[in-house]
C-alpha cells in the first residue's frame, strides 16, 4: 500500500469514528478489525498485527 493510500485509510477511519458516535469508538474499531482480519491471508498475520499494536 502506498503512503497516499495509508493516508486515505487514516482519514476514512477518523471520519468513521465520528460518524459512529455516540457509539463508543472501540466498538466501531473492533468491527473494522474483524472485517479486515477476514481479508488477511492467514490467522498468523492477524495475530501478529494484534501483538504489534500492543507494544506501541
Amino acid at each position: 500500500m502506498t503512503q497516499h493510500e495509508i493516508e486515505q485509510v487514516y482519514e476514512a477511519l477518523a471520519e468513521g469514528i465520528d460518524r459512529a458516535a455516540p457509539e463508543a469508538p472501540e466498538l466501531y474499531l473492533a468491527r473494522v478489525c474483524l472485517l479486515l482480519a477476514r481479508e488477511l491471508p492467514s490467522v498468523e498475520a492477524a495475530l501478529a498485527a494484534i501483538a504489534a499494536a500492543q507494544t506501541a
Binding site: Y10, L13, A14, E15, I17, A21, A52, A56
Partner: peptide, 16 residues
Amino acid sequence: RGWQILRDAALGLALT
C-alpha cells in the same frame, strides 16, 4: 474525537 484517536494511534505506532 475520531481525528484525535487516529492521530494518537499513528504517533504511538510511529515509535516502531
